[in-house]
Computed example of a mutant assay.
Amino acid sequence: MITIDASDVTDERALYLLLMRELGFPGFYGMNWGAFWDSITGLVWIPDHVRFLGWDQLAAHFPRGSTILQWALDNYRAIYRADFVAEFA
């Protein structure tokens, strides 16, 4: 399991940088949602369980990004890894 503290994220760029660092995305990561999807589905192996801390703060500061991130991880589980767990605390 990996725990990602998103409580200090207040904008899209900060969220992309956090995800890049914590999930080990390559330096050429495009810092957009298409690149996020490409990264988790073909460039890196993410742990079986990803826990996000500070989810309420992230959703309050950046509702669009938090919604897209949750949607992407739900779809990742549905399409690629039924055993994958994304926890939003």
Rank of each mutant, 00 (worst) to 15 (best):
R21N: 05
S7G: 10
R13C: 03
D8L: 14
R13K: 12
L18Q: 10
G34Y: 08
T67N: 13
D74N: 09
F25C: 06
D74R: 07
F28S: 13
L43H: 05
G30N: 10
E22M: 11
V44R: 05
T67V: 11
L15C: 06
I46C: 13
I79L: 14
P47M: 07
A6F: 04
M20A: 06
A82N: 05
A78L: 14
I68L: 10
H61G: 01
V50N: 04
W55A: 00
I46R: 07
W45M: 07
A86S: 15
G27W: 04
M1G: 14
A89D: 13
D38Y: 06
N75V: 08
G54E: 02
I68R: 12
T10P: 10
L53P: 04
A86W: 14
V50H: 02
F28K: 11
H61E: 14
P63R: 02
G24I: 01
H61R: 15
R81P: 01
I46A: 08
D5M: 13
V9G: 00
F25H: 05
M20F: 02
L17Y: 01
G24R: 03
I2C: 15
D5H: 08
A14H: 06
N32V: 04
I46F: 04
R21P: 05
F36T: 00
V9S: 00
T41P: 05
P47V: 04
L69W: 03
I46G: 02
A89Q: 14
G27N: 11
T10C: 10
